[in-house]
Design a protein around this nucleic acid. Structure first.
Lengths: 244, 244
DNA sequence: TTTACCTATTTGTCAAACAAATAGAAAATA
DNA sequence: TATTTTCTATTTGTTTGACAAATAGGTAAA
């Protein structure tokens, strides 16, 4: 435990304290799973009240940097950030930015096309039997008479499995954002029967090419899929604007 | 203002309330820049105390979803998430994950190589004179006798300018992560004179190719740069492990 | 030996108050 | 009248002190 308990000026105490603990974690002064002092002790050391300390800790908890437990062996502990949690948080903000129009459809489509092509190239080379099975499972489920929500969930599973086959956690981390950022739009399409058929067709072609480890057919299928999705998204958005 | 003020069980009140307000924002029930009720009123409506409400609000503030101001016209407002803030937050978590070893060097290098090549291809086609000037400014600064910190900052500016030239905010958003995730490692190299010369050389070649809009030379230069960086990183890491 | 209970510790929540910032109204001044 | 100053109401920021709830470990009873 090595924190500097001094404070500077011109910001709320809680925020300052959160920043200090945060940077102590980021700089490795606080190890993962290390226990912080009790809230009372932190309050004493920082010379603030316990509610103020708690506000600071809640900020960090919201960033998944710490977790708390009650009881004698409880307290506040530094958390090892899991890829999923971070990914979820990232996805949440990305979704918000999409719904607020920070990202336009063209940018999203382009980014997805290029990045997913990139992942696909690696996936074709590296895919394991297990990942192939996951792709197939997602595909099979999409062919069942399922609800819109389930269809979309299966869609996301298919593309995540594709990304997982790159065996590169950094690419995964980034791609999850782009894939899920488009989910609200995919939802709009899922309830149309013809769209489902087309999507499934492209997924099937994609799966076959990945299974056979044929790069060019795979890239072609993905291009067609994204062409199709993009055009449908445009139509759906135009329709929605006309309505709203 | 349309929030459901009911609560469910089995989690801290502050967390539940934060979740509710959060989803109200994400679902658009609370518009951007809309003012939330005062803390006292929220406390009354949720039937909890003000400190509890405040802990909930601090969680949301940590996610840049709300901001607060004091005074008669003050209060709590829904924030439009800025690309920079989100990018910074993302970068922060990515940096943490790198420093905790969640991402290995190979994955980072590969992701950066592939994604930056992708950006480069677009950048060569789309770069404006202004972006060219920014690239040149960063490059010129690296040639000056500056401190290690300034050299690294200029390095990041160079690569960010490259990414900006794609004119695609989604790619920018994702690439910033990958670029800055490597900053700690770049820091380790910056103080060696020979490394600086090599990096500057590659940057110069990269700049020339982008300026001339020649894709293949550009891609080649970037490949060489990343080859070099990767090999140096490996050495630096091995040396560090030997020491520690 | 096992079970039940008790106790200490720590986070979670509440209550009431004061401090600080600040916009707008009111009053004093030119 | 126009301008500056002062006052006041409102809202977040912070403090104090207390009690509730969870829980691990020790203690006493069966």
């Amino acid at each position: 435990m090595a924190i500097n308990y001094d404070r500077v000026v011109t910001q709320s105490l809680a925020k300052q304290i959160a920043e200090q603990i945060r940077s102590a974690i980021l700089q490795g002064d606080l190890q993962v799973d290390e226990r912080l002092p009790t809230e009372a002790e932190l309050a004493a050391r920082f010379n603030v009240s316990r509610p103020t300390i708690r506000e600071a800790l809640k900020r960090l908890a919201a960033q998944h940097l710490i977790r708390s437990r009650r009881g004698p062996t409880g307290g506040t502990f530094v958390t090892r950030p899991s890829t999923e949690e971070m990914s979820d948080a990232l996805t949440g903000t990305a979704t918000l930015m999409v719904s607020l129009g920070e990202f336009d459809l063209d940018s999203i489509s382009e980014a997805r096309r290029e990045m997913e092509q990139l992942c696909l190239t690696l996936a074709v080379q590296r895919r394991t039997e297990g990942q192939l099975a996951e792709l197939n499972a997602a595909l099979s489920q999409q062919q069942q008479p399922i609800s819109d929500e389930e269809f979309c969930a299966a869609d996301i599973r298919f593309h995540r499995a594709l990304v997982d086959a790159t065996a590169n956690p950094v690419l995964q981390f980034n791609m999850y954002t782009v894939i899920e950022a488009l989910q609200p739009l995919t939802n709009m399409l899922a309830n149309r029967f013809r769209d489902r058929e087309v999507i499934i067709g492209h997924h099937q072609a994609l799966y076959n090419a990945i299974a056979a480890q044929q790069i060019d057919p795979a890239r072609q299928s993905l291009d067609q899929l994204i062409d199709y999705l993009t055009s449908q998204y445009s139509k759906a958005l135009a329709w929605k604007q006309q309505q709203g």
